[in-house]
Amino acid sequence: MTDEPAAYRTHWLTWLFATLVLVPTILGFANKFLDLVLVVQGDEDGAFAVTPIVNYLLATAGFLCLFVWTATQGAFQNLDEPSHSMMENEHRLDQQT
């Protein structure tokens, strides 16, 4: 359903923006995790910060698992297919009325 140049453009744009988003995310995450370890090891005054960080870690871990599961289910194989099937279904639903 998609022509080759469009598919190629989607492919490299997706990887470009994914890299732009993921690299700082991973760096930021590692930095915060290191801070958490340091807090837990010795800084009594900052120990209460564990609550929001644990909150964040739980949420992120959940989404990491979901992300990995989604990837293994093949959701990122043909990225534009859901978009086209949505349009087709909408067209058919509208034709009924």
């Binding site: 989607t10 744009l13 997706t14 929001p52 990122f76 978009s83 949505m86």
Partner: peptide, 24 residues
Amino acid sequence: LKRPMWSHGLSLVGFWGLAFFYPL
């Protein structure tokens, strides 16, 4: 607009970016 999103893949980048960035 009667046309699919410019890039569905890019929209997923937005979604997962929100999921990982927003909570903190």
